[in-house]
């Protein structure tokens, strides 16, 4: 025991009190029962208890979506902005369902290839939904859905200048992420792996560098999460949150996976704050060698 326990004259009760105090100061949980504002996710002028942002697409049906969203504990959910199509109208109640659930809406610019398109979609979203939040996504092609960095930076600058609270989907590239943060994005969201791929965190070293170099802007891993351990990994790397959709929506049992993701984000967050032990190549005995039986 490193502190307190070995000092003379300190009773067990005192040690436990100190221990509890340390827990309360440094290792806050953000689960449903013990949520505390002190460990909130702050994006722009908004404060979220949950560190999970969840998409609303690709669920088996709306009821499963609602149950899954509930199970994640999320407060912020994404929607796409699409043309009204007379032949193929949107589920009329999609926005109503989300709002009735009490979730804040984060519109995205998914499907935009140019800054010009993304800026127009963001402005339409602001008008349609009455929010300044925008998940900025400017992609370069259909196969990878990777961001087009030039267009992304251009759009980010325009939207920040226009008063948007920009959450920018980015490559796992420290330079691009730094530029997005410097432009005034409210959150920078490097991908773990390609959108919808479920490949997890393919370059944890880059994500670590991005975290180490950007300590003034919330960082969220967006895209590529496949299962709970991926979310844990991202959070253990010190990320402020996770944005995911397919991993839950297309799981065999979406609601169960939603619950697992909630636990994963909390576990990863707590482990990050707790501070992991250094890795060692060789063993180090947990039990004291002193007083062992034998020679």
């Amino acid at each position: 025991m490193k502190s307190g326990g070995s000092r003379d004259g300190e009773g067990l009760a005192d040690i436990l009190a100190v221990s509890r105090s340390i827990m309360n100061d440094d290792v806050r949980t953000n689960g449903a029962v013990e949520s505390e504002a002190g460990d909130a996710l702050v994006i722009g002028d908004r404060t979220f208890t949950s560190r999970l942002i969840v998409g609303t697409s690709r669920y088996p049906n709306p009821q499963v979506m609602l149950e899954a969203l509930e199970a994640t504990g999320t407060e912020l959910v994404t929607v796409a902005i699409r043309r009204v199509n007379v032949e193929n109208p949107a589920p009329e109640s999609h926005l109503d369902l989300i709002r009735q659930g009490g979730y804040e809406v984060l519109p995205n610019t998914a499907g935009c290839y140019t800054a010009r398109e993304a800026v127009l979609v963001a402005r339409l979203a602001r008008e349609a939904l009455g929010t300044d939040l925008i998940k900025l996504e400017v992609i370069g092609d259909d196969e990878t859905l990777m961001p087009d960095v030039e267009q992304l930076l251009d759009a980010a600058k325009t939207l920040v200048d226009d008063g948007f609270t920009v959450l920018a989907y980015a490559n796992d590239d420290p330079i691009t992420c730094r530029k997005l943060a410097d432009l005034g994005c409210a959150a920078v969201m490097p991908l773990g792996s390609p959108i919808g791929s479920g490949m997890g965190i393919v370059n944890p070293y880059n994500l670590r560098i991005i975290r180490e170099e950007i300590d003034d802007t919330p960082l969220i891993v967006d895209a590529g999460i496949g299962t709970a351990s991926d979310a844990v990994t991202a959070m253990e790397l010190g990320y402020d949150g996770i944005l995911l959709n397919t991993a839950i929506a297309q799981a065999q049992h979406p609601v169960e996976m939603a619950h697992a993701m909630r636990l994963a984000v909390d576990a990863g967050r707590n482990a990050h704050q707790a501070g992991r032990i250094p890795r060692r190549l060789y063993a180090e005995a947990s039990s004291a060698m002193e007083g062992r039986v034998g020679t």
Partner: peptide, 9 residues
Amino acid sequence: EVIQAQPGG
């Protein structure tokens, strides 16, 4: 352009 919110990620 006439748009509305739809399911999205």
